[in-house]
């Protein structure tokens, strides 16, 4: 099997300015393949701005972002198919059924045998029984499961998750946890924003803590330290 691309995302002195204030200020880090990076911080710390830049829907005002060897601009033009994104919005159509949503996005990505793949994903996220119901009739948790399936349907290498456990019950959270573990094993780059500290604590290989746009902590959780105390010390 050929190596997945990109094998890392490197940020060097990345800043993002809105008006006169910095949403991000000189953030430098490397996100490696086969690792899960948690992005933590209080409201307004710059987490979503950083995730938007990684998704290439926003551009840095200053600094450099490289996806493997590919520069930001080129990746935004040609590499977006390698991004899977779970945003705080569901990014699915309420009027279509779960199956139709997955088929629609799969067809746009040009995935062959999409019906079969959609069926597999519906089963994987526990939505087989509700597959032919309009998404508007789904609970928040069911929509979130579908959102995760939509984001991973096209086999992305860079997986960006903004609060993926929102609305999920215990079984749903366990599902996300298992999926994230599988993604790591498959060598993908996973970035997750979550306030579910127990999920982060068990899964994250690296923890980035942002405060007022600045990176205050970066790296694995220090041994013997709980995530909550690490967070309180830096956020």
């Amino acid at each position: 099997m050929p190596p997945r691309s990109p094998n890392a995302v490197t940020l060097r002195d990345v800043s993002r300015v809105f008006g006169r204030s910095y949403a991000l200020h000189r953030v430098s880090t490397t996100l490696a393949a086969g690792s899960i990076t948690a992005l933590l911080g209080n409201n307004g710390a710059g987490k979503s701005t950083l995730l938007n830049i990684l998704a290439t829907v926003d551009a840095p005002s200053d600094g450099e972002v490289r996806f493997g060897k590919v520069a930001f601009r080129d990746f935004a033009r040609r590499g977006r198919a390698r991004i899977g994104w779970v945003s705080h919005q569901t990014l699915v159509y309420d009027e279509l059924t779960g199956r139709e949503n997955l088929t629609f996005f799969g067809q746009l990505y040009g995935i062959p045998h999409i019906q079969k793949l959609a069926e597999t994903w519906l089963e994987r996220v526990g939505l087989s029984a509700a597959a032919d119901r309009p998404v508007g009739t789904y609970s928040r948790g069911m929509k979130q499961r579908l959102t995760i399936a939509r984001a991973l349907l096209h086999d992305p290498q860079l997986v960006l998750l903004d609060e993926p456990a929102t609305g999920l019950d215990q079984a749903g959270t366990a599902l996300v946890s298992n999926l994230l573990g599988e993604l790591r094993k498959e060598g993908r780059i996973v970035v997750i924003i979550s306030h579910n500290f127990s999920l982060i604590e068990t899964l994250a290989d690296n923890v980035l803590i942002l405060r007022k746009g600045q990176l205050r902590a970066s790296g694995p959780l220090p041994p013997g330290t709980s995530l909550i105390s690490h967070y309180q010390a830096h956020a």
Binding site: V57, A81, I83, S87, F105, L108
Partner: peptide, 18 residues
């Protein structure tokens, strides 16, 4: 309108050629 209601416009923008 319905493309922005649940953010689908962003999902579409990430699809190459779309």
């Amino acid at each position: 309108q319905h493309e922005t209601a649940s953010g689908c416009l962003r999902a579409l923008a990430l699809i190459p050629g779309s």
